[in-house]
Amino acid sequence: MSKSFAIMAEYETPAEIMDAAKKVHAAGYEKWDVHSPFPIHGMDDAMGLDNAKVGYFTFFGGLIGFTTGMTMQYFMNKFDYAIVVGGKPLFSGFFAFPVSYELTILLGAFGSLIGMFVLNRLPRHHHPLLANERFADVTDDKFYVVIECDDDHYDEQTTRNLLEGTNAVHIEMVEGTE
């Protein structure tokens, strides 16, 4: 039998999986995750996760956007080819602001999205869970706790007992490799 990837427990309501998550977290597992059709309020604390770091990507994206905007306009309208236009100054923060402001938002948005994808290590089109039959309901109305086998706390029996202690309606092993 090929090496199993993880053990998976299925739940029917958010409260039950919240409770199961607390138990698994308390048991000290690291390589495990909760899967739900929608983000469950409070699940992050239940899993003991700290604040998401997407903000840094956004901030640096915005910063780069603003500086490129300002320097581009300074270079083009004042430094490289200074042309007298409309009696207006060659470069001023006022007329340069709208374009820099838009670039800030643009690169900020790209930063957030790319940050999210990078931190989630998406796109990952191949995943053992995606081949699992029951797991297909994760996007419908079922909730799953998945504990990977190569977690150092993982033991065939104790993990299964822990999950049976929760309100899991079904527990099974997930085959396939990372």
């Binding site: 995750d33 909760v34 899967h35 739900s36 059709p37 929608f38 983000p39 469950i40 699940m43 992050d44 899993m47 996760l49 604040n51 998401a52 997407v54 903000g55 956004t58 915005g62 938002i105 900020g108 948005a109 957030s112 999205l113 940050g115 999210m116 994808f117 931190l119 989630n120 998406l122 796109p123 990952r124 089109h125 191949h126 995943h127 869970l129 995606l130 797991f135 994760v138 996007t139």
Partner: peptide
């Protein structure tokens, strides 16, 4: 499948997703 970027509803992903969504809303 291609466009869902291999989304598996993992809560660790939801955490970053919600934060990114909030930031994008904040920028928009």
């Amino acid at each position: 499948g291609l466009f869902s970027m291999g989304w598996i509803g993992s809560n660790r992903h939801w955490r970053n997703y919600e934060k990114a969504y909030l930031l994008l809303a904040g920028l928009s």
